[in-house]
Design a binder for these strands. Structure first.
Length: 321
DNA sequence: CATCAGGGCCCTG
DNA sequence: CAGGGCCCTGAT
């Protein structure tokens, strides 16, 4: 499906703002629902029944941020659509948070200071909808990245829609209702295993009396967490991915999975393995209410380095792409 | 060839 | 609140 250029919007994020380190997270597994290059990011969006291709272009600097959004769709966009898109993008990329206190602080922190300077203005972001994020967290469960990638590709090819805009082809995820027409066996045939059931049940939670993403955004961290844990397939590991990346609670760091444990052990203590309790205590002591944002930056930094070709053999062992 | 753990979660006892 | 079961795949 080819989408035609319809409209341009201009956004002004709150400074300091780092475009590249916000829109692109090199530690994330690659899914064909987005495209990134320096200064430019494409992703797909469903708005009511419309499919929108969004192209974000960096037009500013860290201290004077500006983003242009070029919007692509089949038919023209109404003022209400534009206002919804503006709101969605602002929310998903957390453009209105003032992080100057964080980025101006911690100057004496040996680990954080150089990284905080390097990525000044970066924030947590998740370009997809809550539903899309939940699909990803389910596919991450109890498996290795390679298989997650395969499951996601299988699902998008079968149930997603391929769109072409701004010179690129990416997918847009299916609407949750789609999964009601699909049997558990259909999903198992895509090598999803027992996740088939989880995806079906989770999708149903978005229909009828749907989960309200906007309402969840307004809740405090603990209330938001409580609501998210009610969703079938969301447990203690997925919930803080959601709280941080999707809902931007910058202190949401309460569990460490085994692979992350190894990486944080190395980055914080220079050791192969340190207990999760010790890691959590350390980040809390160092960074308090910003402990997840700070940890996220040092975590992403090694993946940026890897992307730029730096050899990190100990890391390769942990990611198994 | 077989066994098993892996970016967890649900359910049961 | 601990522990078993769950799908599939690549590593051993």
């Amino acid at each position: 499906m080819k989408l035609a250029y319809q409209h341009k919007l201009s956004l002004k994020p709150v400074a300091p703002f780092n475009f590249n380190a916000t829109v692109h997270k090199p530690s994330h597994f690659p899914a064909p629902v987005e495209y990134y290059e320096q200064g430019r990011y494409l992703f797909s969006l469903r708005l009511r029944s419309q499919i929108i291709g969004v192209e974000m272009i960096n037009r500013g600097s860290t201290e004077k941020p500006a983003i242009d959004l070029a919007l692509y769709a089949k038919s023209s966009l109404k003022p209400a659509d534009l206002s919804d898109i503006r709101q969605a993008v602002t929310g998903r990329f957390d453009l209105e948070s003032d992080l100057s206190e964080f980025y101006n602080g911690f100057a004496k922190d040996k680990i954080l200071a150089p990284i905080s300077k390097k990525y000044r203005g970066a924030r947590a972001a998740s370009s997809g909808s809550l539903y899309e994020f939940l699909i990803i967290t389910i596919l991450l469960q109890n498996t290795v990245v390679k298989r997650t990638v395969q499951m996601m590709d299988n699902l998008l090819q079968k149930y997603g829609t391929q769109i072409e805009f701004a010179g690129k082809k990416i997918y847009v995820i299916w609407p949750p209702e789609k999964m009601t027409e699909v049997s558990e066996q259909d999903l198992r045939d895509l090598k999803l295993g027992y996740r088939a059931k989880t995806i079906k049940r989770m999708s149903e939670d978005f229909i009828g009396k749907p989960i309200q993403e906007d309402k969840l955004r307004k809740l405090g961290r603990d209330d938001c967490k409580k609501e998210l844990l009610k969703i079938y397939g969301v447990g203690k590991q997925s919930v803080w991915y959601l709280l941080f990346e999707h809902f931007h609670h910058y202190d949401a760091f309460e569990t460490v999975s085994p692979w992350e444990q190894k990486i944080y052990s190395r980055l914080l203590f220079g050791k192969d393995i340190v207990s999760p309790e010790k890691i959590l205590k350390e980040v809390d002591k160092r960074w308090g209410q910003y402990k997840m944002l700070a940890s996220h930056l040092i975590f992403e930094d090694i993946f940026w380095q890897r992307k730029q070709g730096k050899a990190l053999p100990w890391l390769e062992k942990e990611i198994r792409l």
